[in-house]
């Protein structure tokens, strides 16, 4: 359970996973921030206002799945590194996961890296398909990796 070991269980995750038909339409964010904390940079980061906090800053972020375009601009703004964008429409059988990465070395496009699950377990090699690391992101790179479609909600980090 998340509050005992830091690992989000499938049951805890399910409310923030977009429905199957939304996932099938292409890139969309999954915001794995499940606790009421006084934090809100994700809200102002979204250009289409898809992230809402009903009760103000201490509320959990709520994503309007149909408004989200999957642009990924919220990813590097989140201090919890809790936002991922998944794209199930990548290629048949394969999906992509985009995530923040703030370590060295920063991988390059095309490089093979080790994929890790939520407990840090090595779950195999994956290919980096995109690296976005402009000065405006201030050393938080957004890395997109190509993963087997059934791993899209399991892989949450990389080791370079």
């Amino acid at each position: 359970m998340l509050k005992n070991d830091g690992i989000i269980s499938p049951e805890e995750l399910s409310p923030v996973v977009p429905p199957a038909d939304r996932l099938a339409r292409g890139p969309v964010a999954i915001i794995e921030c499940l606790q009421d904390i006084p934090c809100d940079p994700c809200v102002s980061a979204c250009p289409v206002k898809a992230i809402k906090m009903k009760e103000g800053i201490t509320d959990r972020p709520l994503l309007e799945f149909d408004t989200c375009t999957g642009c990924g601009l919220c990813i590097p703004k989140c201090p919890g590194l809790a936002i991922f964008v998944v794209n199930m429409k990548h290629t048949p059988g394969m999906a992509t996961v985009s995530m923040s990465y703030e370590q060295l070395p920063v991988p390059e496009k095309g490089q093979e890296v080790t994929a890790l699950d939520r407990s840090g377990k090595d779950v195999g090699k994956v290919k980096v398909v995109r690296v976005v690391n402009p000065p405006g992101y201030d050393h938080t790179a957004v890395i997109t990796i190509e993963v087997p479609a059934d791993q899209v909600n399991n892989i949450r980090a990389i080791r370079v």
Binding site: N4, C39, L81, R118, S119
Partner: peptide, 22 residues
């Protein structure tokens, strides 16, 4: 028995392989 800080910060180190012994 439970993590004291914000859970997003806990998940961030857990997925890099750091065990949390509550």
């Amino acid at each position: 028995p439970t993590i004291g800080g914000y859970l997003v910060h806990a998940s961030k180190i857990r997925r890099l392989g750091v065990p949390i012994y509550t």
